[in-house]
Simulated assay, not measured.
Amino acid sequence: MKKALSIFVLFFAFSLSANAQAEKMTTQKELSIEEKAKQNVESLTAVMDLTNPMSESLNQLFYRKYKMLSKENITVAEKQGISNEIDAKLRATLNDELIQKLIAKGLYKNLIN
C-alpha cells in the first residue's frame, strides 16, 4: 500500500512539473512573437520616420503575422497566404517610394515572409 501511495505521489509531482514547464514555454513563445514584431517595426523605423499611430498599427500587423505563423501544422499554402496579406497591407500603408527603398535595402522580403 505504501508503494502504491508513493508511486501516486511521484506521478502527481511529475505531472505538476510538466504542466509548469508547458506554461512557461507558452509564455516564452508569446514573448518571442512580440519581440519579432517589435524588431520588424524597428527595422522600418531605421529606414523611415514612423508616426506613433503608424508604428502601433504596423506592430499589430507584424504581431498578427507571427501569431499566425506560429500555429502548429501550418501549410506552405497558408504561409504564402499570410505573406500575400502582409504584402498587400504594407503596399496599402506605405507609398511606392518607401516600398522601393525597403526592397533596395533587402528589408521588404524579410517583412513579408
Rank of each mutant, 00 (worst) to 15 (best):
M1T: 03
L5C: 00
S6D: 07
V9E: 10
F11H: 00
F12L: 14
F12E: 12
A13Y: 00
S17V: 02
N19I: 04
A20V: 00
A20W: 09
Q21R: 13
Q21W: 11
M25L: 15
T26F: 12
T26H: 14
T26S: 14
E30S: 12
E30W: 06
I33R: 14
E34I: 07
E35C: 00
K38Q: 14
Q39I: 13
V41M: 04
V41K: 09
E42C: 04
L44P: 13
A46V: 03
M48Q: 12
L50C: 01
L50R: 04
T51D: 13
N52P: 11
N52C: 00
P53E: 10
S55L: 01
S57T: 08
N59C: 03
N59L: 12
N59S: 08
Q60T: 05
L61H: 10
F62E: 05
F62L: 04
Y63S: 08
R64K: 12
R64S: 14
Y66D: 01
Y66K: 06
K67V: 01
K71D: 04
E72Y: 07
I74N: 04
I74Y: 07
I74D: 03
T75C: 04
A77M: 04
I82F: 03
N84M: 01
D87P: 09
D87I: 00
A88S: 14
A88Y: 02
K89G: 14
K89D: 11
L90T: 05
L90P: 06
L90N: 10
R91N: 15
R91Q: 15
A92D: 10
N95H: 11
D96Y: 00
D96E: 15
L98D: 15
K101Q: 15
A104T: 15
G106W: 11
G106M: 02
I112R: 05
